[in-house]
Design a binder for these strands. Sequence first.
DNA 1: GTCAATGATTTGAT
DNA 2: ATCAAATCATTGAC
Length: 275
Amino acid sequence: MSLNTEQGMDEAQERKHRLNMHRMKNALFQVLCEIKEKSALSQRNPPEDDPPDPQQLRLDRMLESEGVIGNDADAQLEGQLAASGDNTAEHGDYRAKLNQIRSIYHAELEKYNNACQEFTQHVQNLLREQSRTRPISQREIQRTITIISRRFNQIQLQLKQSTCEAVMILRSRFLDARRKRRNFSKQATEVLNEYFYSHLSNPYPSEEAKEELARKCGITVSQVSNWFGNKRIRYKKNIGKFQEEANLYAAKNAQAVCQTGANGSSMGYDTFDNS
DNA sequence: GTCAATGATTTGAT
DNA sequence: ATCAAATCATTGAC
């Protein structure tokens, strides 16, 4: 039968025709892509500026300094706690909570990254698929991907922000000195009161005096400043209430003066000048 | 539980 | 920067 050969001829012609169409289509798509590209460029953001977001950097720095990010978080945390002058009692609790925040952060981050990657891949495949039936340039795909990753970056930023917030709250809850105040030792209070009542007319220790007192009491200079600030205002507010205390330290001082002999012209107790 | 004492912080003035 | 004053948040006695 000649049907077969006829059919073969037809098929060959058909293939040729399709090939031609394909070439034409590709050429047409390319032109369309160029037009699209030009109109897109002219109508909106020509420069694809992507400067490192200052807020992003700020959050990164903060998280790193809080020991959420970074490989040496534990050592850093120890350093922090040592510097804060807190010992062993609430370390565990604080560290556990911080670790919790850290692991949540990393889990979320990984989740986002995976989702981003997955979504990007998906869109990329989709666009490649579609580029066979409508004009989509490689450049356009790339741009779409950039937009997606930027969008996910914003989500990451939010994650970092909320993590920062959580850390700050934890910090204020555990490291705020007000929340774990300890009264000074009896001896420390003794030393401070001694100085205060023997300088009642001018209870303002100099920087050196503060350092000396801090050393003697085993507290910091700012704690000495705090103490004198509090003491002055509270004494002034109610001198009567402190009279007993004043007498006590006056007697103590008198005893000291007697024991050390009569050379203490500057050792006498002043009276508070409240004018 | 209340409540005064007390150390720390905040605010505003100098 | 330092101080007074008001205020906060905990401690410790009751």
